[in-house]
Amino acid sequence: MTNCLVVDDEAPARTLLNQHLSDLNGFTVLASLDNAVDAFTFLQTNPVDLVFLDIQMPKLSGLELIRSLKTRPKIILTTAYREYGATAFDLDVLDYLVKPITQERFMRAISKYMQSQNSPELASQIPSRYEEMYMFFKVGRDQLKIFLKDIIFIEGLADYIKIHTNDKSYVASEKLGYMEEKLPDAKFIRVHKSFIIAWDKLLSYNTEQVNLVAGTIPLGRLYKSAFLRKIQAGSVSLPAFKTNS
């Protein structure tokens, strides 16, 4: 069993990490704290193996907490700021996650932890199949959990996106560029300035458009070469294709 501690002054961030950890066998959250001072006290008397730690917090920052510990568990930093990366790794942290944290990126951090423990038994307990991967999206006032396998395509709408799934569509507060960065490129590809598609929902294509299980999407000029190159390289597993070129 891996004993975890979550430390973040933002309640939604703690909730998301707790949710990710609850999906894993062999991991338990001993405490979820909103400040580093309480975390310091907790670590003096409790056996913690892995800490998910925010950086910018009142009274004591995450980096200051790390420096104050004589005996350190494995630490994964979680922050909205990229600029602390060099300092963080100088402190020998296990990983550095930039918010919002996707499940895929979270799982990569967990894999690093497992490798550091040299534990194949622990590794076998971690869900790594694509069918189990998901992300949370802000839809209205809620954070909605959507499995990646259910996404057919994502449409960009300025500062919003429209996620088209097998069941229905959702408008979420996010930008398409962020989604292009966070989605696994083995499963998704951007085919137009306004569209990202799921490879496994692609039925056919030509030089002007791609045909999905839920409709037709234009194939943008700026994205056509990368799209065709990836198919021709055989780097994705797709149905038989027929081009009109």
Results as ranks from 00 to 15, higher is better:
residue 150 D to L: 05
residue 75 I to P: 03
residue 205 Y to P: 10
residue 84 Y to V: 05
residue 1 M to Y: 10
residue 179 M to I: 13
residue 21 L to F: 08
residue 68 S to G: 01
residue 95 D to Q: 05
residue 217 I to T: 07
residue 198 A to V: 04
residue 19 Q to K: 12
residue 129 R to V: 03
residue 224 K to G: 09
residue 225 S to E: 15
residue 31 A to C: 04
residue 153 F to V: 03
residue 169 S to Y: 05
residue 205 Y to C: 14
residue 23 D to Y: 12
residue 30 L to V: 08
residue 85 G to L: 13
residue 182 K to L: 06
residue 95 D to R: 05
residue 225 S to R: 15
residue 172 A to M: 00
residue 13 A to C: 08
residue 107 M to I: 12
residue 187 K to C: 04
residue 79 T to W: 11
residue 134 Y to S: 01
residue 69 L to T: 01
residue 202 L to P: 08
residue 202 L to I: 12
residue 11 A to F: 00
residue 94 L to T: 10
residue 119 S to C: 00
residue 220 G to I: 14
residue 90 D to R: 11
residue 155 E to Q: 13
residue 87 T to E: 15
residue 38 D to Q: 15
residue 71 T to Y: 14
residue 208 E to V: 07
residue 58 P to V: 01
residue 240 A to T: 15
residue 194 S to Y: 00
residue 180 E to R: 09
residue 61 S to Q: 12
residue 182 K to A: 10
residue 29 V to D: 01
residue 161 I to Q: 03
residue 157 L to I: 14
residue 92 D to M: 07
residue 136 F to W: 05
residue 36 A to H: 14
residue 182 K to G: 02
residue 61 S to L: 12
residue 30 L to P: 04
residue 22 S to P: 04
residue 63 L to Y: 10
residue 104 E to R: 07
residue 91 L to Q: 10
residue 210 V to A: 07
residue 96 Y to K: 03
residue 127 P to N: 02
residue 30 L to H: 09
residue 147 F to P: 01
residue 135 M to I: 02
residue 20 H to A: 08
residue 27 F to R: 03
residue 34 D to L: 01
residue 225 S to G: 08
residue 128 S to H: 07
residue 156 G to K: 00
residue 105 R to D: 08
residue 231 I to H: 12
residue 115 Q to L: 10
residue 134 Y to G: 00
residue 187 K to T: 00
residue 116 S to A: 15
residue 8 D to I: 01
residue 178 Y to H: 15
residue 136 F to K: 06
residue 182 K to E: 14
residue 208 E to Q: 14
residue 21 L to Y: 04
residue 150 D to M: 06
residue 156 G to C: 00
residue 183 L to G: 02
residue 4 C to A: 12
residue 171 V to I: 15
residue 171 V to W: 00
residue 113 Y to R: 00
residue 227 F to L: 09
residue 208 E to S: 13
residue 102 T to Y: 09
residue 234 G to F: 11
residue 158 A to T: 13
residue 156 G to N: 00
residue 41 T to C: 07
residue 107 M to T: 09
residue 199 W to C: 10
residue 210 V to W: 09
residue 126 I to E: 02
residue 58 P to F: 02
residue 65 L to N: 06
residue 51 V to E: 02
residue 37 V to K: 13
residue 10 E to M: 01
residue 124 S to E: 13
residue 179 M to A: 06
residue 175 K to W: 01
residue 196 I to S: 11
residue 178 Y to F: 13
residue 73 P to Y: 03
